[in-house]
């Protein structure tokens, strides 16, 4: 229980910082500093290193988007979560907190519950793929942590999301 708490606080901090970083989401600008690297010589920890957090976030994809008021994974979302499951199975030293989020078009309490449903949908598929339940925790932020802040569907669509946040399991 205790290490979860620490990890969660750490992750909450990271997630916040990430919100302000335009590069966090994008898959466009992760590959800009690798000119010196030959094929297959990924720098450890870079997105080209398949065991890195950066790779998980940007190549596998750490987030899944949801339709309005829905918590069912669509086909695209399902494929992302399947890839997440494979990665987690191959990188057993990581645990994860799955964040569920909602857009601002809903009441606070309902959106908290809706975010929990979304996070839970991701968790269920990860577990079905063999990821140990004990490695996963879920948290809902409802509409409290929007990634995009315009009041248009273009922003809402990005805010209706789950984010699979990795943390190295310090207790093993």
């Amino acid at each position: 229980m205790k290490h979860w708490t620490k990890a969660a606080l750490l992750m909450a901090g990271l997630a916040l910082a990430a919100c302000n970083d335009p590069g966090y989401l994008g898959s466009d600008n992760y590959n800009t500093n690798d000119g010196a690297l030959g094929a297959g010589e990924a720098e450890a920890g870079s997105v080209d290193d398949p065991t890195s957090v950066a790779h998980f976030q940007e190549v596998i994809g750490d987030r899944v988007l949801f339709e309005v008021d829905q918590s069912t994974l669509n086909e695209q979302g399902r494929l992302v979560v399947l890839a997440q499951a494979n990665w987690l199975l191959a990188n057993g030293e990581y645990t994860t907190v799955i964040e569920g989020h909602a857009d601002e078009q809903g009441t606070r309490e309902y959106n908290l519950a809706l975010g929990a449903r979304r996070a839970s949908a991701v968790r269920e598929l990860l577990v079905a793929q063999g990821v140990a339940d004990s490695r996963i925790r879920t948290v809902s932020y409802g509409k409290e942590r929007p990634l995009e802040v315009c009041s248009e569907e273009s922003c809402y669509a990005k805010n209706r999301r789950s984010v699979t946040v990795l943390t190295a399991d310090v207790t093993g």
Partner: peptide, 9 residues
């Protein structure tokens, strides 16, 4: 209060 478990509230 509301309690969530496994996505259900």
């Amino acid at each position: 209060l509301s309690v969530e478990s496994g996505g259900n509230t």
